[in-house]
Computed example of a mutant assay.
Amino acid sequence: MSGIARGRLAEERKVWRKDRPHGFVARPETVDGAVNLLRWECSIPGRKDTLWAGGFYPLTMEFSEDYPSKPPKCKFPQGFFHPNIYPSGTVCLSILNEDEGWRPSITVKQILMGIQDLLDSPNPASPAQSEAYMLFTNDRADYDRKVKEQSLRYPAL
């Protein structure tokens, strides 16, 4: 199975280099000159005209040897503030759940754009973090303030 995962990821890397959305970064991790196709370092820009604008949010994508049969694990830094991001940083999104919305045809580009959409459009029906969820549902002014503060912690590189 590993040949399938690595082959697919190598192809996705080629496609990404030719056609990536503006402001996004996604590249395999390089350690001592060796490329690790199973771990990608990414950056997701906050969408213009949203609370998230101006931030470039670091994300790691970890693929298993079972990819594309199984989705990657996507993580922001620990403690990332968002109703659908676990305190560990793990993203809670249906397209990343093999029992819900995952399909092997979903690409790295679609995953990253889906996560960008999630930033500004949280899903209150699937909370992963109590503080962010409670503020999002009960105190939007405080929620908005915290999101804006967070965007300042992740400026463009």
Rank of each mutant, 00 (worst) to 15 (best):
M134C: 11
S94E: 10
K109V: 15
P83D: 10
P68H: 13
N138S: 13
P71F: 00
A132W: 02
A128S: 12
I95Y: 01
A132N: 02
D99I: 07
E100H: 06
V108T: 09
L119R: 11
I115C: 03
T137G: 00
H82E: 12
Y133R: 04
H82F: 08
P77W: 04
S126F: 08
C74K: 07
K109Q: 15
L112D: 12
A141F: 01
S126Y: 00
I106F: 04
S105I: 13
P72Q: 05
H82K: 07
P71W: 01
G101V: 13
K75F: 13
D142H: 07
G79Y: 02
I95H: 08
D117I: 10
E98W: 06
P127H: 01
A141T: 15
V108A: 14
G101N: 12
R103D: 10
S121K: 05
P127V: 07
E98N: 08
Q129D: 09
N97R: 14
P71V: 09
P72C: 01
L112S: 12
M113R: 10
V108F: 01
I95R: 01
F80C: 04
P72A: 07
T90D: 05
E100K: 14
T137W: 11
D139F: 07
Q78S: 13
A141L: 13
P124M: 03
P71A: 15
I111Q: 03
N138Q: 10
W102E: 07
D144N: 05
S130A: 12
W102D: 04
D144E: 15
C92Y: 08
C74Y: 03
H82I: 04
D66L: 15
R103Q: 05
D142E: 10
Q129N: 14
D117V: 03
P127K: 04
S88D: 05
M134N: 15
D142P: 00
S126E: 07
K75W: 03
T107N: 13
Y133H: 14
K75I: 08
